[in-house]
């Protein structure tokens, strides 16, 4: 796990090379490379993007250039410019969001785009002697979320579906939803097997924040489910957004996860949850 600014980067290292999950911001690429080189001199083979946001994909172009795709491997048929730069794996919707039809200015440079996308279910890799599952999480943080499960290492990279620093960001404009996030968190809990006494075993790297295990994400799941149930109940009583906000449905969680300033305030979370649950925009 590499921690800097933006989303956490996960690095898997072995004889075959290096696999990265997410790339933080572009300005940090040199520092990320330096951190990688402290651990391994092997080439970067794969970059996996958990979703589209620039704090997770900003370094795609730089880090891809520093790497090389395995040419002749079992993925070669899927990759443009085989062998040139690392392969960037993501859900199809990440590519759709970063690119644009011909003639239209794309939101991200083409060198940053995923080179290898999947549409349904999951994408499997076998790299550095372990199976790596890239599993699609529909309509969660965005419409193109993947979690990455390193099976032999027993580690899951959750992307922004799971953050320990704030309430989850629900990017409704990009097709995210609160229920999708909760489903996805339950999926991660299903995958995680704790070692003795509900501790350790499978480790979970959140999109932002500290390294976790199942017990930590269970508390997060409980919180989201309880808040969801409360707001859902209020919507059922046909309360308006203002009426929902007034009794502070998140009050017991605000000291830990709430914010009144910054990019993602409690107000914004409640509003997004309300919109998501009432499906009104």
């Amino acid at each position: 796990m590499i921690v800097g600014a933006g989303g956490n980067t996960t690095m898997q290292v072995g004889d075959q090379g290096i696999l990265l999950v997410d790339t933080m911001y572009a300005q940090l690429s040199d520092k990320i490379l330096a951190a990688i080189r402290k651990i391994s001199n092997k080439p970067i083979r794969y970059i996996i993007n958990t979703h589209i946001h620039p704090d997770h994909t900003g370094g795609n172009e730089n880090l891809r250039k520093a790497g090389a795709t395995i040419a002749g491997g079992n993925v070669v048929g899927n990759i443009r410019d085989a062998g040139e730069g690392a392969a960037i794996v993501a859900h199809e919707n990440v590519l759709n969001g970063m690119s644009a039809p011909t003639g239209v200015q794309a939101p991200a440079p083409s060198g940053a785009w995923p080179t290898d996308t999947y549409v349904h279910g999951q994408k499997d890799l076998y790299f550095n002697g372990e199976a790596v599952q890239v599993i699609y999480q529909p309509a969660a943080h965005t419409d193109g979320d993947s979690i990455v499960f390193f099976r032999r290492s027993d580690v899951i990279s959750a992307g922004d579906i799971f953050v320990t620093t704030t309430y989850p960001v629900i990017d409704i404009q990009r097709g995210g939803s609160l229920n999708g996030i909760i489903d996805s968190v339950n999926r991660i809990i299903d995958l995680a097997v704790p070692a003795d006494k509900q501790e350790g075993g499978t480790y979970i790297i959140p999109g932002h924040g500290r390294l976790c295990d199942e017990a930590d994400i269970v508390e997060y799941r409980d919180m989201l489910t309880i808040i969801r149930d409360r707001i859902q109940d209020m919507i059922k009583k046909t309360m308006t957004l203002q009426q929902v906000k007034a009794p502070k449905p998140t009050s017991d969680y605000d000291p830990r996860s709430g914010a009144t300033t910054g990019l993602w305030t409690t107000d914004m979370f409640v509003e997004a949850a309300y919109q998501s649950l009432s499906a009104r925009k």
Partner: peptide, 26 residues
């Protein structure tokens, strides 16, 4: 305790301990 802890605790249903993930919680 503060106000938030009280709200948290009053929402806590002891049945939460029957959930598999909470049974062996230390």
């Amino acid at each position: 305790i503060n106000e938030e802890a009280r709200q948290w605790a009053l929402s806590w249903d002891p049945s939460r301990l029957t959930m598999q993930e909470h049974q062996c919680q230390v």
